Lab assay of single mutants.
Amino acid sequence: TGYYDVLGVKPDASDNELKKAYRKMALKFHPDKNPDGAEQFKQISQAYEVLSDEKKRQIYDQ
């Protein structure tokens, strides 16, 4: 599964769309709200870390 799929956004998503999707998913799977969501929360955080950084995103998109 790709990072875009993890966040539920298209590859041409804007920074604002990425942030909005990340916040929505992070709230849904945060371990405090969803004890079984810890692994998914890590994936969401990693996806956002890469896609929100312009240089990392360019490398990922290659």
Rank of each mutant, 00 (worst) to 15 (best):
K33V: 14
L27I: 11
K24M: 12
L51D: 01
V50A: 09
I59S: 11
D12E: 06
S14W: 02
A38M: 10
K42W: 09
K28A: 08
H30T: 06
Y60G: 02
A38P: 04
K55N: 08
Q46P: 02
L27K: 13
E39C: 08
K33I: 14
Y60R: 02
D12F: 08
Y3E: 02
G37K: 13
K20T: 12
G37A: 12
D12C: 15
Y48G: 03
Y48K: 00
D61P: 05
D53I: 03
V6T: 08
I44D: 01
L51F: 02
L51H: 01
G2S: 15
L7A: 00
A26W: 15
D12R: 00
Q46L: 14
G37Q: 08
E17N: 03
K28I: 09
D53S: 08
F29M: 05
E49G: 07
V9H: 02
K24I: 13
K55Q: 11
N34I: 05
D36Y: 07
K42I: 09
F29G: 01
R23L: 15
D15P: 15
E54G: 14
I44E: 01
Q40A: 11
F41Y: 12
Y48S: 02
R23C: 15
A21E: 00
Q58R: 14
D61F: 05
L27S: 11
M25P: 04
G8E: 05
P11M: 07
P31A: 08
I59G: 08
P35V: 06
Q46K: 13
D32R: 11
Y22A: 01
K42H: 10
G2F: 15
G2H: 14
Y3R: 00
R23K: 14
R57K: 05
T1C: 15
I59W: 13
F29E: 02
N16F: 13
P35M: 04
E49W: 12
G2K: 12
A26I: 14
L18Y: 03
A21S: 02
E54R: 15
L18E: 00
N16L: 14
N34F: 07
I44C: 04
V50R: 03
E17H: 03
M25T: 02
Q58I: 09
G8F: 03
D53E: 04
K20R: 13
F41V: 02
I59D: 08
P35E: 05
K24A: 12
Q43Y: 13
Y60T: 02
F29Y: 13
L51R: 00
K20Y: 08
E54N: 12
E49Y: 13
K56A: 10
L27F: 09
T1L: 12
K24Y: 10
D36T: 08
A38W: 13
S45Q: 15
K56W: 07
Q43F: 12
A47Y: 01
A38S: 09
L51I: 01
Q62Y: 06
N16I: 14
N34A: 05
A26D: 02
A26Q: 10
G37D: 12
G37E: 06
F41N: 01
Q58M: 10
Q58F: 11
D5S: 09
D15I: 15
D15W: 15
G2A: 13
G2M: 12
A13R: 00
M25D: 02
A26S: 10
N16D: 15
D5C: 15
D53K: 09
S52C: 12
Y3W: 10
S45D: 04
P35T: 04
P35G: 06
L7W: 01
K42E: 08
I44M: 03
K28G: 05
Y4V: 02
A38T: 08
L27A: 14
P31I: 07
S14G: 07
A38L: 11
A26G: 05
D53V: 07
K19T: 11
A21G: 04
K19Q: 14
P35C: 09
A13M: 01
D36N: 13
V9P: 00
A13S: 04
S52M: 12
E49N: 10
Q43C: 14
D53A: 06
A26V: 14
G2V: 06
T1G: 12
S52I: 14
E54Y: 13
K10R: 13
Q43G: 03
K20V: 12
D5N: 10
N16H: 15
K24G: 10
K56H: 06
R23I: 15
Y3A: 03
A47Q: 03
G8I: 01
P11K: 10
E54A: 15
L7G: 01
Y22I: 05
D15N: 13
D5A: 14
